[in-house]
Design a protein around this nucleic acid. Sequence first.
DNA 1: TAATATTTTGCAACAATGTTGCTTTTTTCC
DNA 2: GGAAAAAAGCAACATTGTTGCAAAATATTA
Lengths: 139, 139
Amino acid sequence: MHEEIKDILKRNNLSVTGSREKILSLFLSKAGALAHGDIEKKAGEKFDRVTVYRTLQTFVDKGIIHAIPTADNSIRYALCKDDCSGGHHHDHHIHFVCNHCGNTYCLDDVVTPEVRLPNGYTTSQIEVVVEGTCKACNK
Amino acid sequence: MHEEIKDILKRNNLSVTGSREKILSLFLSKAGALAHGDIEKKAGEKFDRVTVYRTLQTFVDKGIIHAIPTADNSIRYALCKDDCSGGHHHDHHIHFVCNHCGNTYCLDDVVTPEVRLPNGYTTSQIEVVVEGTCKACNK
DNA sequence: TAATATTTTGCAACAATGTTGCTTTTTTCC
DNA sequence: GGAAAAAAGCAACATTGTTGCAAAATATTA
C-alpha cells in the first residue's frame, strides 16, 4: 500500500515527499472525490495551505487526479483510473453528486453520452454531472 | 425594452430598483452567460459588490436566472428561458463553453441526453457542459 | 556515503472572492 | 404624502487562492 504510493509518484517523475504521500493516500483510501478543503482538514493541520494547492496542481498536471466541476462552485478532485499522462485527461465517465451525503463519485462504468450540437459548433470535451441520491443513501 | 425589465421584476414580486434593472438589462442584452465579475465590471462601478451578490441570489431564487458550473470554478449565470418559478429550475438544455472566446452559451435546442445509471442510484438533475469552439469562433 | 544540484516546503504578504450585521436610503402600499 | 417594508451601501470580516523568497528536504553525482 505504502509502496504503491511511492510507485505512483516515481512513475510520474515526482519526488517522494511527505505531503505528496499523505495527500495521495487520502485519495486512495476514499471512494469519493475530495475538495481542497477536505484535504486540508484530513491532512490534519500538518501541511501548509500553499503546499496542498501546489500538490493538487502537480497531480492534475501529471494526470494522477482530475478536477470535477460542481454546481456549488467547489472543485473536487478524484483519482484518474487510467493513465491520463501529461495532463491530457481522457475521462469519458460521468460524475455523480449525492445530494444526501454530499459525496461525489466517478461512475467509471457510465460513458459520457453523445451530444448532437448545432451546426458550427465543435466539441473538445463533454462533462456530465448527475445529481441525485447514491446507492448507499438509497438503502 | 425598459418596460419588459420592469415587467419581469413585477411578475416575480420584486421591487423595481436601479441595480435590479441594470443587472437584468445586462442579461437581456447579452447572448452568453455572465460571471459575477463580468457584472461588477459592466455595471460600471455603480453598485456595491454586496448588492450584486444579493441581486444575483435573488434572481436565482426567483428563477429568473440559473447558475452554470464550469471547470474553472467560476459560476456563470444565464437567463432562464422558460418560467422557472420559485427557484425550481427545469432547464433541460445543455451548456456550451467556448475555449476560444471564453463565452458560455445555453444551447436551448439541445436537450440533455438520457443517462443510464447503475442500480441503486436515483437522478434528480443532469448537468451537461460541453467545451469546444462556438459558431462565431469557427468562422 | 558525502557533497552538490535540484526540488519542494513553509512563511509572509497579498489579492480576489464571498459573507454578515447594521444603518441609511429607496420603494411600495395605503 | 406618510408609514411600513424592502433594498442598498458601508464596514468589517472570513474564506479562498496566488506569488516571491529563504530554508529544508530530496535526488543526483562522484
